[in-house]
């Protein structure tokens, strides 16, 4: 329990970093880069600004509820959660630690360069590293995977299928 004296913005960021993305449970919402602003208005009231990863991401409602819970549990009486759409979320906002955690979890982290995020057809695919055996000898099975943020890949060396958190 954080006492009222400790309701600084830093303390709130700490609390928020305990909230995980329900679809990628190793990643906190802070590491994912979807918390855009924290504003402690007074000892009772805090306003958080979040941005969705994808417009239809069903995890956003769960995340919103969890943010409410953790802040109420820690002494805030009024929690406002606002949505900011612009600038649009990009995987560039994912922290370095977040990308390492993804890889350790078995999901290939997004590449930094947004080369595949344009509509040109049949582009040469980028080499995505297999999170299991670290081989670059992999191929894309489907541009769309188990959730909106992932594509499906397979390693041609160790043969394991894996998720790639696509750059966006």
């Amino acid at each position: 329990m954080v006492s009222n004296q400790q309701h600084t913005e830093d303390a709130v960021w700490q609390l928020l970093s305990t909230v995980k993305d329900p679809e990628v449970p190793v990643l906190s919402v802070v590491e994912l880069g979807i918390i855009r602003k924290v504003c402690v208005e007074n000892s009772d009231t805090v306003t958080i600004s979040i941005t969705p990863t994808y417009s239809g991401c069903p995890a956003m409602d769960v995340i919103r509820m969890q943010l409410h819970m953790v802040l109420l549990e820690n002494g805030f009486k009024k929690v406002n959660i606002e949505q900011t759409l612009s600038p649009a979320w990009t995987t560039d906002w994912m922290t370095k630690e977040g990308k390492e955690k993804l890889k350790a979890y078995g999901i290939a982290p997004p590449l930094p360069k947004q080369a595949v995020c344009n509509p040109e057809v049949f582009q040469k695919e980028e080499a995505i590293q297999c999170p299991q055996c670290l081989s670059y000898h992999t191929h894309m099975v489907s541009r769309f995977g188990s959730t909106a943020c992932k594509a499906l890949y397979q390693c041609l060396d160790c043969k394991e299928p894996f998720d790639y958190f696509k750059c966006h």
């Binding site: 612009s86 344009n118 509509p119 057809v121």
Partner: peptide
């Protein structure tokens, strides 16, 4: 209208994937 502009900007990233996938 910045709200509309924000929705358009957000959606555009998704639309690019749809264009690419369907034109292929």
């Amino acid at each position: 209208d910045l709200n509309l502009a924000g929705i358009a900007e957000k959606s555009l990233k998704e639309v690019q994937y749809h264009v690419k996938w369907s034109s292929e």
